[in-house]
């Protein structure tokens, strides 16, 4: 019986949290006017979430692209099609690795910071103080961070793709010695604008919404103690990572049905 009580308790608790998150999302959207009317609030947050993530995104993408180049060439060579390494690098980055890895890095670099910041503001009663001054904290603090994340994510994913492809190029052309024209030509012939690029962009937009929502929600919902904020930060990274990977499967199944 204990087991069933435990199962029932966690089911009810997670459903209640999910409902609260959905209502929070709705409230956030109704309070979003301020983040566009006073756009400098959003720009400021884009600096902290987007610009500050550029270095980690760029370095990771370069190495991911180089590893992809080496590994794919190694395999493709066995089938006598080593020239196709550019195609494989570009397709895997555009369709999967770019959006997913950029979102995972974004969740751990920017998402955790957002949660910690909002959680600490709650713990030190700054949010309460804003309410006292008739300033809605969701409009002033939460919504700009959310929208900054939503705007930054597709841009970061696009930059991840470009730097990753450049990493693949560095391996394929100067190191392995594939012809420059063949590398780019094969890539361009086999990568479709709609099917690959636009679908990858949609993925990164969805991930951006999911990660930003989880980050601001966990921060806003955190226990207002030092322990609570640290737990919320951990939950942001864990939940975002799992949600990104599950959403990625759902989106991939919808977009690429292998016809």
């Amino acid at each position: 019986m204990n087991f069933f009580a435990w199962l029932g308790r966690i089911t009810l608790r997670s459903l209640a949290r999910l409902g609260f998150a959905a209502r929070f999302m709705g409230f956030l959207l109704t309070q979003s006017g301020t983040s566009f009317r006073r756009f400098h609030l959003t720009i400021r947050e884009m600096y902290f979430t987007g610009v500050m993530s550029l270095v980690i995104i760029g370095v990771s993408a370069l190495f991911v692209g180089m590893v992809l180049g080496l590994q794919m060439y190694e395999v493709l060579k066995r089938f006598g099609s080593g020239d196709g390494v550019g195609t494989v690098v570009a397709l895997s980055l555009l369709r999967e690795l770019g959006p997913v890895l950029a979102a995972l890095l974004f969740a751990s670099r920017a998402g955790s910071a957002i949660t910690a910041e909002i959680g600490l503001m709650k713990a030190t009663e700054q949010l309460r103080a804003m309410e006292m001054m008739a300033v809605e904290p969701v409009a002033r603090v939460v919504a700009p961070r959310f929208w900054a994340g939503v705007f930054s994510m597709p841009l970061l994913a696009a930059l991840f793709n470009v730097v990753g492809i450049f990493g693949g190029y560095l391996i394929a052309v100067p190191l392995i010695g594939i012809d420059n024209g063949i590398f780019w030509g094969q890539m361009q012939a086999n990568v479709d604008f709609h099917y690959d690029l636009v679908n990858g962009g949609i993925k990164s937009l969805v991930f951006g919404i999911a990660v930003s929502l989880i980050a601001v929600f966990e921060g806003y919902d955190a226990q207002p103690t030092a322990e609570g904020v640290s737990a919320a930060t951990t939950r942001t990274v864990v939940t975002s990572s799992v949600v990104i990977l599950m959403l990625d499967f759902v989106l991939t199944a919808l977009m690429f049905q292998g016809n």
């Binding site: 884009m46 841009l155 696009a158 930059l159 012939a189 479709d192 604008f193 690029l197």
Partner: peptide
């Protein structure tokens, strides 16, 4: 300025992907 550079770089990346990496075959 930094956010401007970031957004410009992101848009440039999208344009690069659209023009050099993919082809509008559909």
């Amino acid at each position: 300025i930094w956010v401007g550079i970031f957004v410009a770089a992101g848009i440039a990346a999208v344009i690069f992907l659209a023009l050099r990496v993919s082809s509008p075959s559909s």
